[in-house]
């Protein structure tokens, strides 16, 4: 039994948590899926490797999981940040979640948000080299080219809302696309509706998205919507210094007004 499995087993044995949410084998050797370990002897189901990409934080908000009791989450860095952002938005409390950090050495359970903050303070931030390259490629386009790029990308959207289903920040019980008094976004998958849906979602995530990439992983049309969110994240960072998911301090870029805000976009 590896350290992760042992830690999960200990937590369950001590009744410190009711469930450990982690990664297990999927239907094919290359695939991974979420597993919900509720008994100590099931702990060996847990695995962690390069293929484990899904952001599991999203499960802790599900009523079915909440009903089980306190949950431990196997957490990569984006997942840890998600947990802090969810705490900022009053969706989880210190008592409801334990994080099991993976990917950076020891799996020492982080039992409160302060511990997660401390842990993240020592983890390098920002986008990977590849992500930066992709973002720069889009930013180097002229506005017209960029518009054409996104129009062509989003024209492939089939409005299945898999991105929303995979996104831990998309926890609204009634999403804007389901609000029909008035009907803000047209239901069919047409150009205008696709644009509206994806742009509204990107705006709703601006200053909140922790760039885990789950949306793009989930997209059956292979649209890089993660790039759209990352572009807005860099915008929020540059304009307002927004770095969501680093602390539980409430400083949502779109809702706080600081004298130091540059506001260059309206000049």
């Amino acid at each position: 039994m590896n350290e992760l499995q042992q830690t999960a087993k200990d937590l369950l044995e001590k009744n410190a948590v009711a469930v450990v949410i982690g990664y297990g084998m999927g239907s094919e050797p290359s695939l991974r899926r979420a597993v919900f370990v509720r008994k100590p002897d099931q702990a060996p189901q847990l695995i962690f490797d390069e293929s484990c990409r899904q952001n599991l934080a999203f499960y802790v908000l599900k009523p079915e999981v909440k009903a089980l009791g306190k949950a431990a989450v196997v957490a990569r860095t984006p997942t840890l940040r998600t947990l802090l952002q969810l705490a900022t938005e009053n969706q989880i409390t210190d008592e409801s979640v334990v994080a099991l950090p993976v990917g950076n050495g020891s799996v020492q359970p982080l039992t409160n948000f302060a511990a997660i903050e401390q842990y993240l303070a020592n983890v390098p931030r920002g986008f990977t080299a590849q992500e930066q390259q992709e973002l720069a490629a889009i930013k180097s386009k002229t506005l017209a080219d960029r518009w054409a790029f996104w129009k062509s990308e989003l024209s492939r959207c089939i409005k299945c809302y898999a991105c929303r289903a995979a996104c831990p920040m998309c926890y609204c019980s009634k999403c804007i696309v389901e609000v029909n008094q008035p009907q803000w976004v047209p239901v069919p998958s047409d150009m205008l509706g696709n644009l509206e849906w994806n742009v509204i979602r990107a705006m709703h995530l601006a200053g909140r998205c922790i760039s885990c990439g789950s949306c793009a992983d989930a997209c059956p049309a292979h649209i890089r919507i993660d790039l759209l969110n990352q572009l807005l994240a860099t915008e929020a960072m540059q304009q307002f210094g927004a770095e969501p998911g680093l602390s539980v301090r409430k400083d949502y870029a779109l809702a706080t007004f600081k004298p130091t805000d540059k506001e260059e976009f309206i000049r």
Partner: peptide, 19 residues
């Protein structure tokens, strides 16, 4: 306010609070 089980579409993120 809406009917049960949601009672309100508000998810209580309270980001409006600081706005």
């Amino acid at each position: 306010r809406t009917g049960p089980p949601e009672f309100s579409n508000c998810v209580g993120c309270f980001l409006c609070e600081s706005a």
